[in-house]
Structures are given as C-alpha cells and as structure tokens.
Write a protein that binds this DNA or RNA. Sequence first.
DNA 1: TTGTATGCGTTATCAG
DNA 2: CTGATAACGCATACAA
Lengths: 332, 332
Amino acid sequence: MSSVTIKDIARALNISVSTVSRALRDSYDINAGTKKRVVEYAEKMNYRPNPIALSLKENKSRSIGVIVPEIANTFFSQAINGIEEIACERGYPVVIFQSHELLEREIANIRHLFERRVDGLLISLSGSHKDISHLEEYRRNNFPIVYFDRVPETAEAHKVVADNFEGAFKATEHLIIRGKKRIAHITSPPTLSITQERMAGYKSALQKHGLPVREELIRYCGFRPEEAAEAICSLLETERPDAFFMGSDRLALDCFEAYKKQAQGRPEDITLVGFTNLSVAHLLEPPLSTVVQPAISIGRKAAEILLDEIENKRRGKGFETVVLGTELNIRP
Amino acid sequence: MSSVTIKDIARALNISVSTVSRALRDSYDINAGTKKRVVEYAEKMNYRPNPIALSLKENKSRSIGVIVPEIANTFFSQAINGIEEIACERGYPVVIFQSHELLEREIANIRHLFERRVDGLLISLSGSHKDISHLEEYRRNNFPIVYFDRVPETAEAHKVVADNFEGAFKATEHLIIRGKKRIAHITSPPTLSITQERMAGYKSALQKHGLPVREELIRYCGFRPEEAAEAICSLLETERPDAFFMGSDRLALDCFEAYKKQAQGRPEDITLVGFTNLSVAHLLEPPLSTVVQPAISIGRKAAEILLDEIENKRRGKGFETVVLGTELNIRP
DNA sequence: TTGTATGCGTTATCAG
DNA sequence: CTGATAACGCATACAA
C-alpha cells in the first residue's frame, strides 16, 4: 500500500493536521494522551513522512551525492564504500553517479543532484574538466562540496587526497634502487591534479638520484584504452625503457595489458609499477608492483568532512585539505 | 544563485503564475507575444523547473533506480553501464545503490527509492534474500520493477538473465572433454536463482557424459572471502579434484586466489573455469578460462523493458523473461 | 493544548 | 487569452 499521510491520520483521529504533525515530531506543547494516540495510530498505519514534501519545504533531502568518473575503477568503488560506511552510520543515504570522464555528464549529474536538493556533494573530477567554473555557482550558493582524489587547484575547497607525490616518489625510487636507468612514465591527462603531483614525485626521485628527466620517456594518455597500447608500443620501439611507472589506476591495467602483448619474447628485465588499487595485482603475470591509495580512508574522511559541514559541526574551521599516505607493494 | 521560480517570472513580467506556467509548457491557448516574452525571460534568468515540486505534484520523478549487491563486481558495473546507456538516451537519470548483499540494506534502499518516487526499479537481489516478500507491497502498488541476473522465482515479474544453465553446461563439458573426471563446483548460496541454474548446468553436463555427480565435490559459499579459501582448501586436501568450476563472479576471483595459495608446488594439471566477467582473467597466472555473461546487454535490455513499462509502451504485453547467451573463453 | 492559515513550486480546474 | 485558486504533504507562525 502506498502512503498514508498526516492528513489521513488527522481525519481518522478527528484532530487537525498540525496537531498530528507536532505529535509526530514530539513537540513539547502537545498533550501526552493525544501524542500517544497519534503515534500509535501512525505506527499502526505504517506512516512514513513523505521525503519529497519535506525536501520542498526545507530545501534539503537528508541525503548526499557522490560523483566519480567510473565505478568500475577499483579505487573509486573502494572510496564509495568508505563514504557509504560513514554516511549510513550517520543516517544519510548516498546517491551515486558516474561522469564517465565526460565534463558534460559531470555537469548534468551535479545539476541533477543539486536540484534534488542533496545536502552536499562528494566529487572526484572527470578527466575532461579544464577548470571548476561549472561548480562556481554552487560554491557561491554555499552548497557543501568535498573533493577527493582528483581535486581542483583552488584553495577555497575541502579536499581529501592521497599523497600522490610521495607515492610516485617511492615507486620511482624503488625502480632506481633496482638499478633501472630508463624509467618510462605513462600517465593521465596533465589537467588532473593527480597527474601533476605524481609527475612531480617521479621527476623528484630521478633528480635525487642523479638521473636525467627524459621527456621522451613520458607519455600522457586520455581515456581510450588504445592510447595506452600506443604509448607502450612506441616507447618499446624507440626508447628502450627498462621500467614502466604507470601513473593512474586505469592506466596501470591498460598498460599492463599492452605491455604483455608488446613484450612477447622480449627480455623480461623490464619492471612494472602501477599507481593502482587493482585488487588482483598480485595475481598477475608478471607480478605487478603497486602504489596503493588508502581509498576507503579517503572516502571515509571525505564523508566526515562533508557531513560535519552539512551539520554545522565545523563552525569557524576553514577549508581543509587532508593528505593520506600511500603504500608501496613490491612484487615479487 | 539558486533558483528563479515561476513566481519570480510572473512578478517580473506582471502576469500571473498560471500564464507563465502555460507559456513555458507551450500551451496552445496562450498569446504568442506573451509566450515569447515569458520564454525569453525564463531563458535569460536561467529558469529550471523545480523537480521536487514536480515530484510532489505528479508522484514521479523522471528518474529510475538500480540496486546491485556490489558495484565493485565487474558484472554489475558493466550491467550498470548498459542501463545508463539506455536510460540516459531516453532522458532518465539513474540512481545507483548497493545492498552489499544485505537484505536489510536492500530493503532500506528500495524504500528510499520508492519514497523518492523513482519511476521504476532495476534490481539484482542480494545474496541474503530468502524471498521477495519485501517487494510484494511495491508490486501490488504497480511500481514497475525489472529483475536482472539474480531474479525471483515468481512468474509475475520481468526478468533479464544470462543463460546460466547453458553457460555452466558449456564450462563443465569443456572440462570433461579436456579429460577431467573429478570436477569440483564451488558456488554461491543455494537460495539464488543463478546458483540453481548453474548447478543444474553443471550436473547435466556430467550426466550427459556419464560422469557421476559427487556431492562431495560441491561447495556452497557465502560472501566472506575466507569461505572460498576454506572450500578450496578442504577440497584439495580430501577430494583430489582435477578441475574447478567456480560458479559466481565474485567467487571466481576468491577461489582463484585461494587456489593459488593452496596449490603451491602441487601438480599444475588442475584446470580452472570461472563464471565471471572479470576483465583481467586473461592476464592471470595460471590463465583463467571464463564463462562471460553479456552484462552490458543484460543492463540495456532490462532498462528497455523498465522504461517501456514506465512509459506504457507495452500495453497488454505481460511479464517478460529475457535470456541472453553466454560466452565461453578458453585459456589458453 | 489545539486549531487555522500560509507557504514551499508547480500544474490543473474553473472563471472571466 | 488570462487570472485566481486548490492541491500535492508537510511544518510552523499565529490565534484561540
């Protein structure tokens, strides 16, 4: 059966809707007996307040939205699980959307969530954003937003990220210590925050160990799977790298696959490290070493900040940037 | 700036709200000049109708919901992509929820979506459902629901599934033809439709080839990762299987991992086949043969049926069950 | 302690 | 052709 309303209850009990409303909300100025009658009847009729009516009235929905580029990406699905853990605990359903790396989808998603009055938004920017002008109007509106993983440059925002510089540095240094001299870096579009930070870590490690930064060994890739293959292919043919550092979650796998195809019969002395949360890295052949982001913690922390913001529990505290450490898993 | 309303427009143009409303909806009985003024002003002010107000009024939201056990599961994320493809094309945003295999979460998700007046629901049942009594009340309400993958037994429902029987049959037969005699089957909880169908395919293939069905070679697993490991472990120790057929998407990987650990140093003449859409099966070591479900097509088809139902494009057509073929990928 | 009236943004009905 | 009004379900300021 669908919905019994406050009005039905009022009619049945021969009292006014406002009395019912207040009884249900446990208002202090209501007679205990009336309150009891109302509550019991509501219970019996399985009354549930209509959240749409509430949203219309109060301009909020007691739910939050999250937008990620792709849920199929392990990092994002883990982050979402972290978000849901906190949000559910605090009574907020989480509405999930994918931008599929498309700015246009991202814009549509944001608008949809905003118009539906989600109380706040968690977002990891799509790969095709140039800036966050499409988020400006929401910001001006004081719409609570927390960015995670792929964040904007502005200081005027809450951000939760992994220590991308450190992760890339550790990965590169590990390769150097293994004796690698020509370490290729295949990474995501240069517009992304993660790309820049990881690139900086990569270069810094090379410099620290006195190795030259060779731009020929660096490739930026978009989101077509073939791009990784093309990059790997051209690198193997012309640059003779002795190691690959793959700079993003999705690329790690695309590159791994392309490498496997390309490297058939080639000497196996090329070492791979991927910046990825791929759950099967240890089961691959050859084994894939990884820089793993604390995805669940990132999700949790982002959700905490957002909910505190929504519930006004951070009065005065300004914008916050949280950086969480990464983990280097060396295989074998 | 948030939202300019129809009322603001009316005030600005010195006409009534109803005129504005009709002008905006291009009602026939409105003066062309007025219509133009209104439309242009609305455009200029970037007016967007408030979907919450519309939902309250019309008892629908022009959006659909989807509930899956886990988005991290490749099959489900692919299915969701199929759903989104169709839904976006037809102008319906897709709201994604996870049940995490928990009946209680499933119930909460359904209620949330229903109360928010999504126009319909796509759902793959959680592993802990016993029946669909928690969906009965919605059914009685004529709330459009399409089940996919994990479907209920009732005939009174739309269902879109892979041909699980055929997939399991092909997988098992392939192992038999390879000369395997003691084929173990590790599978999901027996309450799930997919479990039963795959089990039937497995047994049928054995029977066709004159092999006995040994219950000792069959293990049902829940959703704790350790369960797969325990099953593999006990099988290897006591039953000497010469092949494994893993009956569900998630289990395929859990089992693969457990097998790799357990089988260290054992003869490599055990062959594995997994019922899974795992995108990295071909990159694993040892190579994992797979039965692959047409996840995207399943998602597309389910969305089509749901939207046709919502838009009343299937007047008279009763409940439909669509079965799509699977693909057996043999590696190597 | 309870009831009445109003408004949230929109559309539909009914008058004019 | 246009305007006033009720209604969707709820909360609340104001009356009583």
